[in-house]
Design a protein around this nucleic acid. Structure first.
Length: 923
DNA sequence: CACATCACG
DNA sequence: GACGTACGTGATGTGC
């Protein structure tokens, strides 16, 4: 006979929280209750097929929302203290744990867990099943009226039956509700009758039968406090009776059959356990999977196998155009607990594009497209039948914001921005582009099409196939619904398939930490930064453009005059011909494409020769180059990038653009705004704050060198940073024995060279010395700073063996070319591999600072401080002038302690802060 | 589209 | 023994 176990998850969690030590996992997350919960579930699942063990199992949770009881009595559960701070983050993990056992996790808006348990109990009894309620909650004891129902308290492994209610409350389960009503419950704030506790309540009920009869008999009771209270609080007693009544007719969100227990499902559980570092449970899992493990546990356990999905069937997708259909999809997503989401828009720029449709994916080939803004370009053309955008979004918003439903996207930052503009804040979420990057950085790109080929062997419909190219290219809103559905729903389907593969791999391959602690939280942070944008002074840029134009024109004339004819100065080919052929300057070097190199180094080499015939022209060309660069790339382009709606410039950050884990910035790139020259700096002055606000810039000083000192464990460097010494001065003294301008500059060059993976020739070129001299300096450096050598050797050995390097936070960067046969290529990879752990750790740290910044500022009562930009070791904020002094220490602290507690550093992280009316002034 | 150049950390 | 020289990016203009 089927035996259904219904786990009262919420009550278990609270009890586990208080009874178990406050464990944390390797990510610093509190997991004590999760651990207890996991072992409890496991214990239950292990009882499968044993006598009185479960054949069916489900976990029922409370939904943190109002129920019908609040409508009856607004004070219901009003006294309940908020859940402890370190328990709150464990709720979603408990859902993860349940899913890891492939068990349904059931919660419904408007119903308490008790009501769902009552309803499932009734349904199971109706089919003749046996039911065990895993809880010790007294309210649930009411359900033991049927002999086929019992309860199990897993904390002390005790079975409870009807006799237990008699022992505890003096009545059987059938009268328990009456007793509970009179008693009341201070925790749930059920009022009951004052002065009536369990003993009196039981006595009254045994005598009169139920609450109504007790109240009716009250006037004839012997005078006293009890009689007065019963009369005075009769209404409260009646209300209490209703409050403790369990609803057993709730529509069941999941059929009973869906609760069938199939044992311990290994791969998802393994991923979950590994994520939290539950080592003893992992070992138990390995033992269970392989009774005679050969060798270490890791080797014994097989890597998670990729799910075997059916091929993508584009005709299986549904176009959702009715409210009923939309409701169905939303309900199904809610029920399942996760859903792939993708938005379609009319353009590529998330800050400007209009929302055209949303697609959802639930399982392979189970995906839909909800068109919301198709047609309408031609006012006479008939719009296809589709849902009203506002109405559909009103239905989707609760799903997208439901804390119990995981939303999965590919490059979700884009969707977060678009949906954010419609007042929807998507949470919780997973982003498969970020997962792919954290798993496979350096191996391949992470775009959907490329990953679909790589992991699914599937060729996605090309966007261009759908919208065409060139001047006939359509906006997605002009695409017919059938084609749009095939394209859009495929994206959701494919995204979901990625997720099914990546999620277990994250834990298995040790990428969970960097994903959960560094990159995933950043997606929303970046969406917020991009949405905020930064104000630029268009007038100032226009004036600079004008100014540059005049200077460029003048220089152009002079250069043409010196050449004796007109040519295109911006063409390296033509310039090279003029300088090296026509003017006969010696020493021209041709590159592989046969043109002379005319880059800055080359031109400066020529200019350094006082007798060179080309000196005058070269100097003017250098000026011309600088000004044209600034004009075309910055002063002209930035004006065009101002969003007409917001009046600000909104860059787009890529989390997957740089192999080391750094961000990159595009459209426009705000990470390469000039600063090194005086002319260039004027452009930074055009990045301004709104009236009443200021710009604050906070940057890590020498963070890469500090991290090198820590990672390579170099005592002399570490001590210097601990003392707060100027590190380049220190290096100069160590290497050259004297400190002056020249030795400091050389020391600085060498310090950076070390970070980049040095070569004698490279250093020689930079310092203008012979390679032998450069080698001598390198040797001396290694001698003075032991640790660097060892770091380089160890890093390369490990990278060759593993195929990747790792940062302090476990971020991997793969280097497949380390094994290349081309020595040049190999050497390049080696230098990159030496640099990656340092650059990547720096990226991890500032990302963590960014993820923590918003909450820290809110905590400090500074909601108006907005983080706008990140430039690798710098964060730029806009804030009310009056908030500056309060914000500074918060920002400083968050940045300086960003590595902690996960990664304690042996060097302090220095943060420098500047404030001003513009970005330029804040430096 | 490849290349050279140059802006940033 | 030759190779070609610092790590990581993105935008622009030229020229094919």
């Amino acid at each position: 006979m089927p035996h259904l176990y219904l786990v009262d998850g919420s009550s278990y969690i609270f009890r586990a929280y208080h009874r178990l030590p406050p464990l944390t996992n390797q990510h610093g997350e509190p997991v004590g209750a999760v651990y207890g919960y996991t072992t409890m579930l496991w214990k239950l699942a292990d009882q499968l097929h044993k006598a009185d063990g479960p054949t069916h199992l489900a976990v029922i949770l409370d939904k943190a929302e109002e129920t019908f009881r609040n409508a009856m009595y607004d004070q219901y559960k009003a006294n309940r203290p908020p859940a402890p701070e370190d328990l709150v983050p464990q709720f979603p993990m408990i859902r993860d744990a349940t899913r890891a056992f492939s068990l349904p996790c059931i919660e419904e808006i408007g119903w308490e867990a008790d009501d769902l348990i009552a309803s499932y109990t009734r349904a199971a009894l109706a089919q003749g099943w046996q039911v065990t309620i895993v809880s010790s909650d007294k309210d649930l004891m009411q359900l033991m009226t049927d002999p086929a129902v019992d309860m199990l308290d897993t904390m002390n492994n005790r079975r409870l039956g009807p006799d237990d209610t008699r022992e505890k409350f003096g009545v059987g389960p059938e009268k328990l509700g009456e007793v509970l009503a009179l008693m009341g419950d201070s925790v749930d704030n059920v009022p009951g009758v004052p002065g009536v506790g369990p003993k009196t309540a039981a006595k009254l009920i045994l005598e009169y039968g139920d609450v109504e009869s007790v109240l009716a008999a009250a006037p004839s009771m012997k005078p006293g406090k009890l009689r007065d209270n019963l009369i005075e609080h009769a209404d409260m007693a009646r209300l209490s009776r209703k409050l403790v009544e369990l609803a057993s007719d709730v529509p069941l969100p999941e059929p009973l059959e869906g609760m069938e227990l199939k044992g311990i499902p290994e791969p998802p559980l393994r991923a979950f356990l590994a994520h939290h570092g539950f080592k003893s449970l992992l070992a138990r899992l390995s033992a269970a999977a392989d009774p005679a493990p050969a060798g270490p546990a890791e080797a014994a356990a097989p890597a998670p196998a990729a799910p075997e999905d059916p091929p993508c069937d584009l005709d299986a997708y549904e176009t959702v155009v009715t409210e009923d259909a939309l409701d169905r999809w939303i309900a199904e997503a809610r029920h399942q607990g996760w859903v792939a989401v993708d938005t379609e828009t009319s353009a590529l720029d998330a800050m400007q594009a209009d929302l055209v449709g949303v697609s959802l994916g639930l399982a392979p080939n189970r995906a839909c497209y909800i068109p919301l803004g198709h047609g309408g370009t031609d006012m006479f053309a008939e719009k296809p039948v589709q849902l009203d955008r506002g109405a559909a979004l009103a239905k989707l918003k609760p799903l997208l914001e439901d804390p119990a439903v995981l939303k999965i996207g590919h490059n979700l930052k884009y969707d977060l921005i678009v949906l954010g503009r419609h007042g929807v804040r998507v949470a919780p979420y997973d982003d498969t582009i970020v997962m792919s990057f954290d798993l496979d950085a350096g191996l391949h790109g992470h775009g959907m099409d490329e990953l679909a080929k790589e992991h699914l062997g599937h060729q996605c419909i090309a966007f261009k196939e759908v919208v065409g190219t060139g001047k006939n290219q359509l906006g997605f809103h002009e695409v017919d619904l059938k084609t749009a559905t095939r394209y859009a729903a495929e994206d959701a389907d494919v995204t979901l398939r990625f997720w099914r593969r990546f999620k277990p791999r994250l834990a298995w391959e040790g990428a969970t930490r960097v994903y959960e602690m560094v990159d995933r939280p950043l997606v929303q942070v970046l969406a917020d930064m991009e949405s905020a944008g930064i104000k630029v002074d268009a007038g100032a840029l226009a004036r600079l453009s004008d100014d540059f134009s005049k200077q460029i024109a003048a220089l152009e004339e002079e250069i043409h005059g010196l050449a004796g004819f007109k040519f295109t100065i911006g063409s390296p080919k033509q310039l090279g011909d003029v300088l090296f052929d026509k003017m006969g300057i010696k020493g021209g070097r041709k590159g592989k494409s046969g043109v002379y190199s005319t880059d800055v180094n080359e031109l400066e080499r020529i200019a350094a020769d006082k007798d060179s015939p080309g000196r005058e022209m070269v100097l003017k060309v250098l000026d011309w180059r600088q000004l044209s660069k600034l004009k075309s790339t910055y002063t002209d382009a930035l004006q065009a990038q101002i969003n007409p709606r917001t009046g600000r410039v909104h860059t787009s950050y890529s989390l997957t653009g740089a192999q080391t884990g750094r961000l990159s910035s595009t459209d426009p790139n705000l990470q390469n705004i000039p600063i090194r020259t005086e002319v260039g700096r004027q452009i930074r002055d055009a990045f301004v704050a709104e009236p009443g606000n200021v710009i604050l810039s906070a940057d890590y000083s020498q963070i890469e060198l500090r991290l090198a000192a820590h990672i390579a464990d170099v005592p002399a460097l570490r001590d210097a940073f601990a003392r707060g010494d100027d590190i380049h001065n220190m290096t100069a003294m160590e290497l050259f024995g004297e400190l002056n301008r020249d030795t400091r500059a050389r020391a600085k060059t060498i310090n950076f060279a070390i970070l980049y993976g040095i070569s004698r020739w490279g250093l020689a070129g930079r310092l203008d010395v012979t390679p032998d001299e450069a080698q001598a300096m390198i040797d001396r450096y290694f001698e003075r700073f032991p640790g660097i050598n060892r770091y380089i050797a160890d890093t390369l050995t490990n990278a060759r063996e593993a195929g990747y390097t790792t940062t302090l936070f476990g971020r991997k960067t793969h280097f497949p070319r380390l094994k290349a046969t081309n020595p040049n290529e190999r050497a390049g990879s080696e230098r990159a591999a030496i640099n990656a752990p340092i650059q990547g750790t720096c990226a991890d740290i500032i990302k963590r600072a960014m993820a923590r910044m918003g909450p820290a500022l809110l905590d400090a009562g500074l909601p108006k401080v907005q983080m706008l930009l990140q430039v690798h070791d710098e964060l730029v904020f806009e804030l009310p002038e009056g908030d500056v002094e309060a914000a500074k220490p918060v920002i400083e602290r968050v940045m300086a302690t960003a590595a902690e507690p996960a990664v304690p550093l042996s060097v302090p992280l220095g943060v420098e802060i500047g404030v001003g009316p513009s970005w330029g002034a804040a430096h």
